[in-house]
Design a protein around this nucleic acid. Structure first.
Lengths: 253, 253
DNA sequence: CGATGGGGTGACACTCGGTCTCAGACCGGT
DNA sequence: ACCGGTCTGAGACCGAGTGTCACCCCATCG
């Protein structure tokens, strides 16, 4: 059980070996030996030598997606911009809650360009999740697309910048700076959407108590020639939406 | 002479082979043979099998950096935000000026995840160049860093979004949309930079004029316990398994 | 109780991207 | 003719990643 726990061994071993003797100088076989698994098992579990470094981001991304999905359902009155910032804060807190791993990884990234590139890919997944969420939640109109893309990108970029600042100086509490920066971004986005839009933004509280328009049933994948996907999966009696979604993804992958 | 010219042969050969018989199915040796060069020469010139697809971006990035550097010197009076948008426009025009290559590459990216990841890295280089430029040009202060990072990220993200729209429909002229979007971003950034700035927001236009049609999400999962779930969702062409899974979950929830 | 079947594992062979070394070709300068 | 630098092809080499097969553990079922 708890495969996550067992996984940590190989992840730690990998990061430790990478930092100590260099990324290129470390072979997958060495990592596998250090973790007492076979080379084949290593690839089966982590996919690649690069991915093992970001193993925890797999679950974290899931958490973020779940958070946004819940926000979409239950908290449909909430400001979408605030919700995205909440999700970003979740990522930030994840790093802060495990400084050892995050700092070790950061030190490693400084030395290995290949891993920096890989981190970009990881980061981009969050940006995509944010963008998709915003497209479905921001008021429709000609500015929807630009606003969604821009806000998601700026939130991720600012988050990363401040996270890096924290990684260099883990003593300082960066949460205030993060909140301030997110506040700036929200105000800017609200103002940009504002002229043609409705209410004056009170800046401090969520804009207008009015409920935004609910999500369109399935039209949350705009842009692109729509294609219809028919998925048929089995589900347990007590399967949640998440479970079904996972089954679909696994089936497709 | 004109190594660029000779390079095009291998680049074209690579893209052509990739699209025709698949990326993984194509070996570097085949590309080298098609371009009448040796395998070793291929790696010396293009670095890797992935990089050959984005060979033109090397020079393009140089152009962008030069443009920004010139702007930094001679045009020190120009608005930095406008200059960054000019640089982004340069990238956009580059694609528009060679629709064949750009579209072929885009079609290829739809099929090859590894190349999509690589494109991210390429794109990020522009973002970095923008960020560095803005950090040096925007007024100093606590908001400098956030503003620089956020604006660079949003410009790149919006540029990419509109570029992708153009790639799907190369007939339409996307320049107006691009300029409009950049204008939105600049206004938003300028307003955020000067929260105390008094320039009147043209919010004078009557608010609340927009009509919103409430649409209830279709919870079409029977209240009973399904053993088999049939999900029908729309998905963009470039939708990943994750995207589809997300759409399924959203539809269920 | 033994049979069965599925999931996870190790062992191993294999492909191929990418690096390195070496030898030769070309070329301008002296 | 000689030399120094650059570019090239040839080939050896390493290691990441894949695919296959046999094995084992364990849960289910006749």
């Amino acid at each position: 059980m708890t495969p996550t726990r067992a996984h940590h061994e190989a992840v730690d071993a990998a990061i430790e070996l990478f930092t100590r003797q260099g990324y290129e100088r470390t072979t997958v076989e060495e990592i596998a030996d250090a973790a007492n698994i076979s080379r084949a098992t290593f690839f089966r579990r982590y996919g690649s030598k690069e991915d093992v470094v970001f193993a925890d981001h797999e679950v974290l991304l899931d958490d973020v997606v779940v958070l946004l999905a819940e926000s979409r359902d239950a908290r449909s009155t909430a400001d979408p911009l605030v919700e995205v910032c909440r999700a970003a804060r979740l990522v930030f807190d994840h790093h802060v809650s495990q400084p050892r791993i995050s700092r070790a990884r950061h030190a490693l990234l400084q030395q290995v360009p290949a891993l920096r590139d890989r981190e970009l890919v990881t980061t981009h997944r969050y940006e995509r999740a944010f963008t998709r969420y915003l497209r479905g939640r921001l008021p429709e109109g000609p500015h929807n697309d630009t606003a969604s893309v821009a806000f998601a990108a700026s939130v991720v970029a600012v988050h990363n910048a401040i996270l890096r600042r924290w990684l260099r100086d883990p003593e300082r509490d960066m949460r205030p700076a993060l909140e301030d920066a997110f506040g700036d971004l929200r105000r800017a986005a609200a103002r940009a959407a504002g002229p043609a839009a409705e209410d004056s933004v009170p800046a401090s509280t969520a804009p207008g108590g009015t409920e935004r328009e609910p999500v369109t049933p399935t039209g949350d994948i705009p842009a692109g020639r729509p294609r219809v996907v028919v998925a048929v999966v089995e589900a347990a009696d007590d399967a949640t939406a998440d479970d079904v979604a996972r089954a679909v993804r696994d089936a497709l992958a």
